[in-house]
Amino acid sequence: MWIIIILIILLISLAAAAFLWLRPATGERAEIWVDGELVRSVDLSKIQEPERFTVETDRGVNVILAEPGRIRVESADCPDKVCVDAGWLSDSAAPIVCLPHRLVIRLSGDASLDTEVG
């Protein structure tokens, strides 16, 4: 009986994971959020040369590398390096997360904007 329950949960989770992760990304704009606040957005479709910048908080530093159409965390001083290991974010709806630094990089929004107010 238990095997069946576990198998059902496994199947539902697999289906949900496949749906969430294989879902195409919604935008060409990468947004970098720290602590629930949008600190920077990069239009990946307009980048011609690799652009490197650092996001520094009192928790630590993430060095982010943006290239045409994709973005990644190149290095970070967080303890787990999960954000670095996540590699390029280009066409998946799953964001890059650096939990120790509370940093999230995700694709979304309108690619035509250079910045935002409000």
Partner: peptide
């Protein structure tokens, strides 16, 4: 020109 987005209140 620069395109500046304005957030919906």
């Amino acid at each position: 020109d620069w395109s500046v987005g304005i957030r919906d209140p």
